[in-house]
């Protein structure tokens, strides 16, 4: 079946199978910043924005995205650059496999709750697991990023 998705503000048409998930369709079409982690909504690595809201692309059927807007980190390069600088300054990036999904989720947190405190940051991002950093440096980076934006 054909679906039409507006990815990073460009209209795209993809041929998809009814059982295909958005993650596979995106990777197949060279959106390689969207990555596979756990296959079952548990880790957050495959996060994309669906109509500006973070969703796990590993569990969103591609056909359900038909007619919607999808944002990957390629669609928020400026913001990701900024967030990257904050992560870098706090030593909050290690393996980085989850970082594009982290950028998308932090960006969406900024849209929803720009004044989020540490507890709210943790609650918003709890679905984004990290096995490397122990989280502390990430929270420092995100707090500073949000603080400097508002």
């Amino acid at each position: 079946m054909k679906i039409k998705i507006t990815i990073n503000e460009k209209d795209k048409i993809f041929e998809v199978e009814p059982s295909e998930y958005l993650l596979d369709v995106l990777r197949r079409n060279n959106y390689t910043s969207v990555r596979r982690g756990c296959d079952n909504t548990s880790c957050g690595v495959c996060t994309v924005l669906l109509d500006d809201k973070p969703v796990p692309s590993c569990s969103l059927l591609a056909l359900k995205a038909n007619g919607h807007r999808i944002t990957t980190v390629e669609g928020i390069q400026e913001e990701a650059h900024k967030i990257g600088l904050y992560f870098g300054n706090e030593g909050a990036d290690q393996c980085g496999y989850c970082n594009p999904s982290m950028a998308l989720t932090v960006y969406s947190l900024k849209l929803e709750n720009p004044k989020a405190n540490e507890q709210e940051i943790k609650e918003y991002l709890v679905g984004n697991l990290c096995r490397c950093t122990g989280y502390v440096a990430q929270h420092e980076a995100i707090k500073k990023y949000l603080g400097d934006q508002s």
Partner: peptide
């Protein structure tokens, strides 16, 4: 609801 998984699942 706020304690179910992460925000991204709750959006879906």
């Amino acid at each position: 609801i706020s304690q179910i998984m992460g925000v991204s699942i709750r959006n879906l």
